[in-house]
Design a protein around this nucleic acid. Structure first.
Length: 929
RNA sequence: GGGCAUUUAGCUCAGUUGGUUAGAGCGCGUGCCUCACAUGCACGAGGUCAGAGGUUCAACUCCUCUAAUGCCCACCA
């Protein structure tokens, strides 16, 4: 079976096969197991609308590496998978689908629409889950969760209830970020600001009467970036300290175009430096103005509809889109001579994170969570180090946001999502609303809510918070009860992910075992949305942190540094890459080029790195498998290690392997994945393949060589498995029949340890085999071979030509080289090899001078003495340069006095060595005449 | 307005606690289809570590400032 291994690795023949095998054998499944320690990662649940992009590829590769590593390390390793219902995003997708049929969701009605979304979810919602499998993700699919699962939804209502009872949830009229396209409120995080090139309009607001004022003007000029909102102005504000306006008291202004009379108010919030120092006050469309109006007892005037068109308060502009109205208003103001000027004004505007529409600050009645009380313990937890961020710098970002946290608007005016567990008694609501001013009433209710838990319940008459729909109103007994129309922010369910996925609030055994989870792997964009809120929720409802470590990886960009996005057309599709290069190549490449926490710049070409490495592994394995004889490789490595047959190369590669293994572990434990990957790359390719396998060839049939080839390959595969699960599994199965006298029936379920690499233990570092002396001796041999190759290359000697060489070496080196003659002959293509303590340089030969060694290669037919002189003089120069540097140090009295003794001693020794080398080089040089 | 990150070979980037000659991949040059691998092998060229100060016996590494680029945050009418 071994001889027909193809000479190039073909991922297509292995990936699906092994993934299916792992999955059907339930090798990803984890369960509470008191005999093992838990290791758990909850996946950042991708949106059901999601399709795999490179960000996911990076994120999930990292998680899979950790999960597989810990699993092999003997942990009960659970990767909890799932998807997020992604309220607005999913609703948008389905609405688009409806639009293609010429329908709107309103035509269907809420119930039918929701049904339609569920259908869509059933059909397309697991696309990304399928794609994650192609990556090799070893998620426990039996536990797949969805944020709208029944029990998950129960957790969400439970949380709402508990927070409400604690007085941390309130309803009120406030300025929120309103997306006129999605027609819903958004949280601050959902409306990221973008810098824009805007305009600042200066508009004259005439005074009603002009007689009693000292100024000559009969108007006041205000500056605004959103002229259309002036229709909702209720006052003009100036700073009380502003001298320009100190004589203005209680004057009345006529709002242009509208004719409404406005007061001038004085408020310190107004920045005298900005614009004219006079600001129009539009409480229904600006948070500052809203606050100011409340302070001065002014009623807001809303001038827009939820869809961003002007409403009936806008008079003749009613029905126009907000930006259309802006143009019209400017035209009209111009006509009336009320437009003073228009300045360019860069500013930043919130944009809907789902549809990128400019959000409108908009007064509306929404539900909020008071965040300060939740933030407090979450700040503590990070400050005290109970949660650690990697890289550490994100700690500050997190703390800064937490310390300035704002209340969270959680109600959304969409249909797809968790309905608020809020019910209203029509009877009570109607009676309580009579005659009340909405704005002030709500403002008071917040205060009261916060003051006392008991008051909170009765605060708003007619509101019932309940897990299930109440039959009757507890106050008036009426059965005329309806549920709040709104749904909750998607993140109001995702923030429960680390425990709601385990069935909280039931105290299930898995929850106890796996919570707190071990690590969270995510991207920087999501720290506020998700990470911070999970920490708050975990502390609030579980009383402990939801995870110990947070690893923040970089953002995936194209090779010019732009974010990958569909609209930019610079997407590299992971599935394309998997198709062309293989999943292992994708995984290894992306992990190799991602320095801890730095952004990743990708291009198609970069995936060749992983593909080539996979191919290298494949071919090295192919070579070994082709040559292995099962009877040779049964013995224990530790026993064989002490056999006299074990030679320098054998011991060296083992020393290197265990050294590298410990480096990989250190790197993985500190989330330095690229380092772990490159350590293995360097080891496997350059130490194992380039040197050891080449060394092994002359003695390929000897037992010691076979054992070492096999053991190092087999262990390397295990270490590489978390990074490249497919190819390592495939090779593992080719290796199996050679090593087990009686191979098990292929992949017997009970005996995973034998049948699959992913259930193998991670290799232990055998410290006793890490041997610096062996490493040093091997270095002499390697240097020697390189030196000969060097000479051959310099004189252009065809590889088919074997040369004779003479080595003059000091005693220790003679012993090492003499024992390794076969290697020198093989790897440097040497015919006659003479090693001695006093070899004489033959005439017309090239020379190499190393520490303790000189090498002479007689080259009558090739050599040109003049060029050889040049070659040597270059080396002489190089060494002189270094010596000069060392001399400068050693002649510095301060250095000798202050530097540690070891450092001084090392310099001295180095100087002695180099001087010796230099002397011998010069002799050789002189010899050339 | 605050904050963060980046600046090292032609390109893309590593470089943990300051201490021999600063590394890799790609690209480039030369020679090789050497019986595992041309997705390969061997050898090589290429860097005053953004700039200026400072700390230190010693700075790519620590501190200050400057410049360029990118990102995040903020109630900039």
């Amino acid at each position: 079976m071994t001889s027909n291994i193809p000479p190039a690795y073909n991922p297509k023949l292995t990936e699906e096969k092994w993934y299916n095998f792992w999955e059907t054998e339930k090798l990803f499944h984890a369960e509470a197991n008191p005999e093992k320690k838990p290791y758990c990662i909850v996946i950042p649940p991708p949106n059901v609308t999601g399709i795999l992009h490179m960000g996911h590829a990076l994120n999930n590769t990292i998680q899979d590496i950790l999960i597989r590593y810990k699993r092999m390390k003997g942990f009960e390793s659970l990767w909890m998978p799932g998807t997020d219902h992604a309220g607005i995003a999913t609703q948008n997708v389905v609405e688009k689908e409806l639009a293609r049929e010429g329908k709107k969701r309103q035509n269907l009605g809420r119930e039918k629409f929701i049904e339609r979304v569920w259908q869509w979810k059933e059909k397309y919602g697991s696309t990304i889950i399928t794609q994650l499998r192609k990556l090799g993700s070893s998620c426990d699919w039996d536990r797949l969760r969805f944020t709208m699962d029944e029990d998950y939804s129960r957790s969400v209502s439970e949380v709402f209830l508990r927070l409400y009872e604690k007085g941390l949830i309130y309803r009120g009229n406030y300025i929120v970020n309103w997306c006129p396209r999605c027609q819903t409120a958004l949280s601050d995080e959902e409306a990221p600001h973008k810098d824009m090139e805007g305009l600042l309009y200066y508009i004259k607001y005439p005074f009603k009467t002009t007689d009693r004022r000292p100024q000559t003007e009969d108007y006041i000029v205000v500056a605004t970036t959103r002229p259309e909102t002036m229709l909702g102005d209720v006052a003009v504000a100036v700073n009380p300290k502003d001298k320009r306006y100190k004589n203005i008291h209680n004057e009345t202004i006529i709002l242009p175009l509208v004719g409404r009379e406005l007061k001038i108010i004085k408020d310190a919030i107004v920045e005298p430096e900005f614009g004219t120092g006079a600001v129009k006050v539009t409480p229904a469309h600006d948070p500052n103005d809203f606050a100011m109006a409340k302070k001065h007892g002014l009623e807001p005037v809303l001038v827009m509809n939820p869809d961003g068109t002007m409403n009936k308060n806008a008079g003749e502009y009613a029905g126009m889109d907000r930006f259309e109205a802006r143009e019209a208003i400017i035209e009209d103001l111009k006509e009336r001579g009320l437009l003073v000027k228009i300045d360019k004004h860069p500013y930043s505007l919130g944009h809907c994170y789902r549809c990128h529409t400019i959000v409108e600050p908009y007064l509306s009645k929404q539900w909020f969570v008071s965040m300060k009380p939740l933030a407090k313990p979450a700040i503590e937890a990070v400050r005290k180090g109970r949660i650690k961020f990697y890289p550490e710098r994100w700690t500050r970002v997190y703390l800064n946001w937490m310390e300035n946290i704002q209340d969270w608007c959680i109600s959304r005016q969409i249909w797809w999502g968790h309905r608020l567990p809020v019910y209203y008694c029509k009877n009570c609501v109607n009676s309580s609303l009579r005659g009340a001013s909405v704005a002030s009433d709500e403002a008071i209710s917040k205060e009261r809510l916060l003051r006392s838990q008991k008051l909170a319940r009765n605060d708003e008459i007619g509101i019932i918070i309940s897990r299930v729909k109440p039959e009757k109103c507890p106050d008036c007994g009426s059965a005329d009860i309806y549920q709040d129309e709104d749904v909750l922010d998607t993140w109001f369910s995702s923030w429960l992910w680390p425990f709601a996925t385990f069935g909280w609030p039931q105290a299930k055994k898995d929850l106890k075992y796996f919570y707190p989870t071990s690590a969270l792997i995510t991207a920087q964009e999501i720290i506020f949305f998700w990470v911070a809120r999970m920490i708050m929720a975990g502390l609030e409802f579980m009383k402990t942190v939801p995870f110990r470590d947070v690893y923040i990886h970089g953002t995936v960009r194209d090779d010019t540094g732009k974010k990958m996005s569909k609209s930019l057309g610079n997407i590299i599709d992971p599935l394309d890459i998997i198709n062309e290069f293989g999943a292992d190549a994708l995984r290894f490449s992306i992990i190799s080029i991602t320095a801890a926490g730095q952004d990743v710049f990708l291009s198609r070409q970069k995936f060749e790195l992983g593909r080539n490495f996979a191919n290298k592994i494949w071919n090295a394995s192919r070579f070994i498998i082709m040559n292995l004889k099962p009877e040779n490789v049964k013995s224990d490595l530790c026993v064989s290690y002490n056999s006299p047959d074990m030679n320098l190369a054998d011991k060296w590669i083992l020393s290197r392997f265990y050294q590298r293994l410990s480096e990989v572990e250190t790197a993985l434990e500190s989330y330095r994945f690229n380092e772990a990957a490159s350590v293995m790359y360097e080891f496997f390719w350059h130490e194992f393949c380039d040197w050891y396998i080449e060394f092994s060839k002359p003695s390929i049939n000897e037992t010691h060589t076979q054992i070492v080839l096999y053991k190092v390959l087999e262990k390397s595969l295990r270490v590489l498995h978390p990074f490249m699960p497919f190819i390592t599994e495939e090779i593992w199965h080719s290796l199996l029949p050679l090593t087990i006298a009686c191979p098990p029936k292929p992949w017997r379920r009970r005996d995973h340890r034998l049948s699959t690499i992913m259930s193998q233990p991670w290799p232990h570092v055998q410290k006793q085999m890490i041997n610096k002396k062996i490493d040093g001796q091997m270095q002499v041999l390697i240097d020697c071979i390189v030196a000969v190759r060097n000479i051959r290359a310099a004189w252009n000697i065809n590889p088919s030509v074997r040369v004779d060489i003479f080595i003059k070496a000091k005693k220790d080196a003679v012993a090492v080289l003499a024992a390794s003659q076969v290697y020198i002959k093989n790897l440097a293509r040497v015919e006659g090899l003479n090693i001695s303590g006093d070899a004489k340089k033959p005439p017309k030969s090239a020379a190499a001078v190393l520490k303790d060694i000189e090498i002479y290669v007689p080259l009558e037919r090739y050599i040109n003495l003049g060029e050889e002189r040049q070659r040597l003089s270059k080396k002489i120069e190089e060494i002189c340069g270094i010596l000069k540097g060392i001399d400068a140090k050693l002649s510095s009295r301060d250095f000798l006095k202050r530097a540690p003794k070891e450092v001084v001693e090392a310099k001295r020794q180095r100087k002695a060595e180099l001087s010796d080398t230099l002397k011998r080089l010069e002799e050789n040089y002189a010899d050339l005449g």
